[in-house]
Every structure is written in structure tokens, then in C-alpha cells.
Amino acid sequence: MITGDTILLALMLVTGVNMARYLTALRSLIYVMREAHPLLYQQVDGGGFFTTHGNVTKQVRLFHYIKSKEYHHHHDTLFTGKCDRVRELFILSATLFFVTLLAAFIV
């Protein structure tokens, strides 16, 4: 029989792997953004995005850009593909995080 701890451990493992996938896709998007959309790269503090002194308000700008799907009007298909991937992985990771948090309180 599967215990609640096993289910919680499996959920944490899957959530951790998907968070790593999301962060890797986000890093890849920022790298592509430097050439495809230099103005947005500067607006979201692309060079300092993953540093400890990164500006959170500028990082939220990227969140709203991807959330509202403003990238659909961009001409570079690689850039739009990366934005779609980051958006999908963010939704998946956030959902898994909340399910894992809910399961932790239930178990």
C-alpha cells in the first residue's frame, strides 16, 4: 500500500524537476531575448535577472509580458516559441507547487 509520505515525496520530486525545467527555459528565453528583443531585455534587467541584486519590479515586467501574450506580435519564431514554453512551464510548475502544498497539509 502506498503511504501518504510516499505520495508527498513523489509530488515534491516531480515539482522540483519541473521547477528546474522552468528556470532553465527562463534562462534560455533571456539569452534569446538579448538578440531578438533588446529593448525588452533592458526593461527586464536581462543581465542581472538571476543575480541577488536583480530588480524585482523589472522581473515582474517579464511576467506580465508573458502572461498577456504580448510576444505573439513578435517576428522571431524562436523567441515566441521560447515564450510559449516558459508560459506553459510556469503554469505547470505553479499548479504542481500548489497541489504539493495542499497534499502536505492533508497528509
Rank of each mutant, 00 (worst) to 15 (best):
I2C: 05
I2V: 14
G4I: 11
T6Q: 15
T6N: 15
L8I: 06
L8K: 07
L9C: 09
M12W: 11
M12H: 08
M12K: 12
L13Y: 07
V14D: 03
N18L: 07
M19N: 09
A20N: 10
A20C: 10
A20T: 08
R21L: 12
Y22H: 08
L23K: 08
L23A: 08
L26N: 04
L26R: 01
S28M: 15
I30T: 00
Y31K: 14
M33H: 01
M33A: 05
R34H: 11
R34W: 10
R34V: 03
R34K: 15
E35T: 12
A36I: 02
A36D: 05
H37K: 09
P38Y: 05
P38C: 00
L39D: 13
L40E: 02
L40D: 02
Q42A: 14
V44H: 01
D45Q: 10
G48N: 12
G48A: 06
F49P: 00
T52P: 11
T52S: 12
H53S: 14
G54D: 03
T57W: 08
T57F: 15
K58A: 08
R61A: 15
R61M: 12
F63K: 12
K67W: 14
K67Y: 15
S68A: 14
S68W: 14
S68L: 13
S68P: 04
Y71A: 00
Y71Q: 00
H72A: 09
H72Y: 14
H73K: 13
H73C: 07
H73D: 15
H73S: 14
D76Y: 02
D76V: 02
D76P: 01
D76A: 02
T77W: 05
L78K: 14
F79I: 01
T80I: 02
T80C: 04
C83G: 02
D84W: 04
V86Y: 01
E88S: 12
E88Y: 11
L89Y: 02
I91C: 04
I91M: 09
S93M: 05
S93R: 02
S93D: 02
A94C: 07
A94S: 11
L96A: 04
V99G: 04
L101R: 12
A103V: 06
A103W: 07
A104V: 05
A104H: 13
V107N: 11
